[in-house]
Design a protein around this nucleic acid. Sequence first.
DNA 1: TCCTCCCGAGAAACCGTTTTCTCAATGCAG
DNA 2: CTGCATTGAGAAAACGGTTTCTCGGGAGGA
Lengths: 348, 348
Amino acid sequence: MSAGGGRVRIYDVAHLAGVSVATASKALNDTGRMTDETRAKVKAAATQLGFRPNAMARGLIQRRSFTIGLLTNDTYGRFTLPVMAGISEALVDQGVSVFLCGVDDDPALGKLHLDAMLDKQVDGIIASGKRVDRKLPVDLSNLPVPVVYAFTEGHEGSVTLVSDDAQGSTEAVEHLKRLGRKRIVHVTGPESFASVRERAAAYRAAVGGEGIVLHGEWSEHWGHAAVDLLWTAEGARPDAIFCGNDQIGRGVVDALRERGVGVPEDVAVVGFDNWDIVASQTRPPMTSVDMNLKAIGREAGRLVLELAEGRAVEPGIRKLPCSLVVRQSCGGSAAVTHRRGGVEATVE
Amino acid sequence: MSAGGGRVRIYDVAHLAGVSVATASKALNDTGRMTDETRAKVKAAATQLGFRPNAMARGLIQRRSFTIGLLTNDTYGRFTLPVMAGISEALVDQGVSVFLCGVDDDPALGKLHLDAMLDKQVDGIIASGKRVDRKLPVDLSNLPVPVVYAFTEGHEGSVTLVSDDAQGSTEAVEHLKRLGRKRIVHVTGPESFASVRERAAAYRAAVGGEGIVLHGEWSEHWGHAAVDLLWTAEGARPDAIFCGNDQIGRGVVDALRERGVGVPEDVAVVGFDNWDIVASQTRPPMTSVDMNLKAIGREAGRLVLELAEGRAVEPGIRKLPCSLVVRQSCGGSAAVTHRRGGVEATVE
DNA sequence: TCCTCCCGAGAAACCGTTTTCTCAATGCAG
DNA sequence: CTGCATTGAGAAAACGGTTTCTCGGGAGGA
């Protein structure tokens, strides 16, 4: 109520209500035994004074800070921010706030942040990154608080959340097949990435054969180059390109347009990541696989809280489903007429 | 040292060192009076046990949480993340951690996060946003803790940090002039943005006349459209385009290429924001004005700490300089030959 | 030698809650 | 009418540190 929200103590509430501090505390927390009348009186006093308990004092005795830490090496925030949004969404109602710590790939910085968080008695830690198959530069095993990994590699016996790359990949290919596309190629990132391998494998399974998988870097430039490669090669040309991320997708769409190849009339394109700034700015806007990072964040928040409150959580890797966001780069649901017979060369 | 970093209390340190808790505390904090020998003995014991003080207990008495909150409505993180990185960088050495709270434009959510932070006794709050001339959906005046605004509009008498749009704009235009460009036009965002007006005014001053300013939306599409407009209009064509942000810049570069206009040979292009993912991916990579958001963050962190520690800070708006990041869209430093005489039409 | 002053170190109060323990009053059964 | 269980509420101990206060002892001056 009054301006200085931080000043009024439970002592003031107790005094106004005419009870002891102990009773006031119990009244406000709905614990202990007392008349309904007393409880109501205290609550009224608290409201009137705008009382908000000091979380440090409370936390000291409850051994609970209502605070969790998010440690990440994804300084650009491409992956971490949606995850963070999900975590926050899951926890803010429980009064839990989140420390965000960007540690780059610097072990010393990681330790610094980690120690600062532990000193502050965080109830748990969520580790996140920019790559599923890499670890953070700081060891989080044997911490005195629970840890959940989201979108980064965890330690032995940890709880880890990732997106289901295979399922997302399958969904994309099935979508293209449903639209009548026959010769679908996959242009993706470096094979050293686990997610690349997983997506490619699912792609192969979905096209029901070897398919064509082209590996390159995660850039628009590679998207261009891949199209050049495909269009200067001999044999049948693809009528659909499934890209390993949206930047490659953008390069592909641009290259196709520059070649006079119609998207989606001649070639359908699907991207991966659903990075809005990229996917929605291509011409035409690009259909893309969304990894539902926010959902991963929500789940991570929920799980770390479970652990913090002492409930057991089954360890292991949990894969959360991706979903396809349809834009205009694949054409309408009307089946597309196809032309030549399929020749499935293998480039890899 | 031992695994459970959180368990060892100052009591244990004191006991091991053979002194009282009070002495131990003073020894570790380099306060109070005692023999160097005693101090060293305590410190050794602390190190040996891996003692780290419980921040809640310490904070309770010191009325200091070594925690600050960052409130933002920039859910996409384009502006907030660099600011956050700067804040963190400035504060982590002092042991200060940062709560990140994304509040969208929802006043209720804002209040929820704000209350949670105040309960946790944050030492200060930094407000940030996606637009300099808009306020957050939550009132931060009359808070019991200091507030600093970074890249968002503050309240009366507050401390506010923004980038110096005019200076950045001037720098861009001077760069183009230095390279021999004569007919520089400005393609930018909606006039309703204060930063747009400021940048445009500086542009006009720098070109030394009315210049040409085209307003549109903040999109690649508008970049394309603007080029169409300029190239179908009568009269002399520009030999340089200064864009209001990188997305417009990207649209401009793409449109020019599609028209067969050489960048930078025929037309030089400069963007604004230096959003790496956009600026470095254009062909050719685009020179752009960087707002040095990280520096703004660092300064915000420094200032909020000053205030938190009771030192006075002059209120008002502080503008931090932008800097030009040169890539390849303006050509080398060699002067470019110019062709026609200048006709400076005004479109606006 | 005695008094004063200062130094090193410990005892205790304190920060703002929660929680356990204690206790008087009430109600009910015998 | 007495004894016992139950109830409502307060006193006090915790939580883990910091800070103020106190105090004994040694050094130095008279």
